[in-house]
Computed example of a mutant assay.
Amino acid sequence: MGSASMTARERLIIGLDIGTPEAAERMVERLGEAVSIYKIGMQLAFSGGLPLVRRLATAGKDVFLDMKLLDIPNTVGHAVEAIAAMGVTYTTIHAYPQAMRAAVAARGDARLRLLGVTVLTSLDAGDLAEAGYAGDVSDLVLRRAEQAAAIGMDGLICSPQEVAAIRARIGNALELVTPGIRPSGAAAGDQKRAATPTAAIRAGADRLVVARPVISAADPHAAARSIIAEIAAAVG
């Protein structure tokens, strides 16, 4: 689906960064029809949440299984095959060329969409230097974006701060999904490269991943609706 045809609701992904499947299901019930896409990450997956993937898919929700795969090609390929068989809509692979090529080959004709993780939004230039990378964050993100497009990935996970530069470099070749979204007044937490929903959409993001500002809100349904309204206004 091209971004121009998406509704504001379809642009919002809620991260179920919750410790138990039971609590996650209660959150899904509270959010109701306000949300159509849910992200299940490591915390919930490793707490018994994988069966929730099928339950959400059966209920008509799209599921983003955020496993950030990185391993030898054979292992990445078999993992992608297993994830595709679960009915997942999106999954993530760290944007190393070898891993991305293995994922694309293993996905085949499945409906699963592959997102390359460029540089985690909790990292900045100092963190990259400490890890042994030369250059700055934007250089690495743009290089990985070019590689992902050439390899045949469907999209990228990138911070809102890099969206405009990626669009300038590769156009609309990839769907851009941005975590690190913080509505005005929300605490940044451990996110070092964050932005508001309005700023991310206007920069060219297709979908926004939001977790804590919604699931920790006193009224999660109202918080989600507020973000959807802000997205709609930004798309304008």
Rank of each mutant, 00 (worst) to 15 (best):
M86T: 04
A203D: 12
A203H: 07
V80N: 04
A148C: 10
G60D: 07
S36T: 14
E25W: 15
T178V: 09
R212K: 00
L70H: 15
A103P: 03
I14R: 05
I228D: 06
Y133R: 02
A110V: 02
V141S: 11
D190K: 10
G2N: 15
Y96N: 07
G60Q: 08
G180P: 01
L140M: 10
I227W: 01
A150E: 15
G185S: 05
L114K: 04
F64T: 02
S159L: 08
V235L: 12
M153E: 00
R202L: 04
V214F: 01
E22W: 02
A217F: 07
A200W: 01
A57S: 14
L114N: 05
Y90L: 12
D219Y: 02
D206C: 02
I231R: 03
R11L: 05
A82M: 12
G155L: 01
I227M: 05
N172G: 15
Y38T: 08
A23D: 14
A203R: 02
A82Q: 14
A125L: 03
A4L: 14
A164C: 04
I18P: 01
A188F: 06
R202D: 00
A148K: 04
T20S: 15
R169S: 13
G60I: 07
L120T: 12
G152Q: 00
A23H: 09
D139M: 11
S47P: 09
T178G: 01
Y133G: 04
T89R: 15
L69Y: 00
A187G: 11
A103S: 03
P220G: 02
V177R: 05
Y90P: 05
A223H: 03
R202Q: 15
P21V: 00
G87R: 04
Y96D: 15
E33Y: 08
I201V: 11
A23K: 12
A105V: 08
D136G: 15
L120F: 11
P197I: 05
G236S: 14
L120S: 11
M153D: 03
M42G: 12
R212T: 08
A223G: 00
D71T: 06
M27I: 08
T58A: 13
A229C: 02
V163G: 00
M153S: 03
R182N: 03
L56G: 05
V63P: 03
G32Y: 01
D17N: 09
I166Y: 09
D109Y: 06
A195S: 14
I166H: 00
E130M: 13
L123A: 12
V76D: 03
G77R: 06
S36N: 12
R11P: 04
T198D: 13
L156T: 09
L56N: 09
E175S: 12
R212D: 04
A211P: 01
D71C: 02
I151H: 00
A165C: 02
A134C: 11
I93V: 15
F46Q: 13
V35S: 02
R182V: 10
L174I: 11
R169I: 10
D219R: 08
L174T: 12
L52W: 07
T198V: 13
A105D: 13
Q147I: 12
G132W: 14
V141E: 11
R54S: 13
T92M: 01
T121K: 06
A148F: 08
